[in-house]
């Protein structure tokens, strides 16, 4: 078991013939992910890493029955790619693209909700279930199968934490990057609910950052609905107000969205909040010991 992707995942790659799309398709296939097809308008008849390319998502769906879409389409065309995926029945759409205007994402978010699909991202590294499927751009080799679910707004910071866990002999059930934009399809709360329900997950690592109040909502949700131990880290304790820290969503505005507020909210909800990424494995070990679970299986 795992969340979002597993051995039965059949991936369609939108923007498969582009530089990023073709590179990461090869990487995903090498990891063992079942990439069944790709889409690039005008690309019919080509193949990338042995996956057939189609002009439209509809053609690819009819021929190859994918159940997860991953999008590498440039920002100005990415919203259209998300609509094309969900309107052709894809239940899970993972958008890697960075730089999509907020004004485009607001109606995209509403539409995805309306049709009952799930969007992960945009501006995210995707998701991986170690040993089963990698649908994203993370380095696969740092992950090991195990009992810890990881959820994060950031890419490289997630790799940092996952790498530290793996080195400490602690494997992961799934690792999910929800993205660094102000409007994202899947929130911390959504992923926490999935991990709570997942029998393969015994503990959860949540990596937040400044901006917005998704972490505060997560804290409330953890208090009320999560029985598994949660370890938290929040990046941006030294970030100044009013400045965007790389991610479009990482900004302290009007004095709210600070790391201190988020850390306090999580601590109040019983989350073990650590002050540095390297402290995550120790905190997880302690948490798992406390609930009598082995750190690896």
């Amino acid at each position: 078991m795992s969340i979002l992707v597993d051995r039965d995942t059949r991936v369609i790659v939108q923007g498969i013939t582009g530089r990023e799309g073709s590179f990461h398709t090869t990487q995903m296939v090498e990891y063992g992910t079942n990439v069944v097809s790709g889409v690039t308008p005008g690309g019919r008849g080509k193949t990338v890493a042995e996956a057939p390319v189609f002009d439209t998502v509809a053609d690819a769906v009819a021929a190859t029955e994918p159940n997860v879409a991953i999008i590498f389409v440039p920002a100005r065309f990415a919203p259209d790619a998300i609509y094309e995926a969900v309107d052709n029945g894809l239940p899970l759409v993972i958008c890697i693209t960075e730089g999509i205007p907020v004004a485009d994402m607001v109606p995209v978010y509403a539409h995805v909700k309306q049709v009952g699909a799930r969007l992960l991202g945009p501006n995210c590294p995707g998701t991986i279930t170690p040993g089963a499927a990698k649908v994203g751009i993370m380095p696969g080799f740092i992950h090991t199968p195990g009992p810890v679910g990881v959820v994060s707004r950031s890419g490289t910071l997630t790799y940092e934490v996952v790498d530290a866990l793996s080195r400490a002999g602690i494997g992961q059930s799934s690792a999910v990057g929800i993205g660094g934009d102000p409007v994202i399809g899947t929130s911390f709360v959504d992923v926490l609910a999935l991990f709570e329900a997942d029998p393969a997950t015994d503990a959860i690592v949540m990596i937040g950052e400044i901006g917005g109040d998704d972490e505060e909502h997560a804290a409330r949700f953890i208090e009320e609905h999560v029985t598994k131990p949660v370890v938290g880290f929040i990046a941006g304790q030294t970030a100044p107000p009013g400045k965007r820290m790389g991610h479009a969503g990482a900004i302290i505005s009007g004095g709210s969205g600070t790391a201190a507020e988020k850390m306090a909210a999580l601590e109040a909800a019983g989350v073990r909040v650590v002050d540095r990424p390297s402290a995550v494995p120790g905190a997880i070990q302690a948490a798992l010991l406390a609930v009598g679970q082995p750190v690896s299986r």
């Binding site: 950031s154 890419g155 940092e160 304790q237 030294t238 100044p240 965007r244 820290m245 790389g246 540095r276």
Partner: peptide, 27 residues
């Protein structure tokens, strides 16, 4: 992506989240 701050340790990092975590580590 670059934001000027007031300290004396220059940081060069790949990734926004890791860059924030690096600033925090310096502090």
């Amino acid at each position: 992506s670059f934001v000027k701050l007031d300290g004396d340790i220059g940081c060069i990092v790949n990734g926004a989240g890791l860059a924030m975590a690096t600033m925090d580590a310096v502090k």
